[in-house]
């Protein structure tokens, strides 16, 4: 299994690996050896993250709101909309203390009916300015064609984001949960 996954990942000119592969909470986590940003939202430690049985997009947004509140405690509430294709599919409840956002995201996917999270660059500067998550959570429950479309859109968007020159702060990087 590991050889298949590693075989899918790019290597540099010296055939050195660019990504590490580990398994956490039954989720295969692929992380860059050299991260794109020095301070990632995903490294943020969340003192407490507690959700009941809610859908995957709701759990993803709950994590995003937790990060926004940690970053700016004066935030009173959030407004917006999101896609909830499978309202009947709930993640198992989560009650975690002092976990990183990355660990919680992995827990959400691990407690789901099957899926993946994919994150682009997740700078802390973006968290201050963006109203969207820097990650996308995909649910395998979707038809293959629908999931293929979602992934294609996400990949195109990530390509554009990574092709942009790095800004010191305030760069908007959009992705939806």
């Amino acid at each position: 299994m590991g050889s298949v996954i590693r075989g899918m990942l790019p290597h540099d000119g010296n055939n050195d690996k660019l990504y590490d592969v580990t398994v956490e909470n039954a989720v295969v986590v692929v992380r860059p050896v050299r991260p794109h940003v020095t301070e990632s939202q995903l490294d943020t430690v969340v003192p407490q993250f507690k959700i009941g049985s809610i859908t995957v997009p709701e759990a993803s947004l709950a994590l995003f709101f937790a990060l926004k509140r940690l970053n700016n405690p004066s935030i009173q509430g959030f407004a917006g909309d999101y896609s909830n294709r499978f309202p009947q599919d709930k993640v198992l409840p989560i009650d975690e203390q002092n976990r990183t956002a990355r660990e919680i995201l992995t827990k959400i996917v691990g407690n789901s009916h099957g899926g993946a999270w994919v994150a682009g660059p997740c700078s802390m500067a973006e968290l201050k300015t963006s109203g969207q998550t820097c990650w996308t959570v995909l649910e395998y429950r979707n038809d293959a064609d629908v999931l293929s479309g979602d992934v294609g859109y996400m990949v195109r968007e990530l390509r554009q984001r990574l092709a942009r020159p790095k800004k010191p702060s305030g760069n908007r990087e959009g992705a939806h949960p």
Binding site: L9, H36, L105, T106, V109, L162, A163
Partner: peptide
């Protein structure tokens, strides 16, 4: 299930 952090265009 997967968790994937994309750091470069190679992926």
């Amino acid at each position: 299930c997967f968790g994937i952090e994309v750091a470069d265009l190679g992926l």
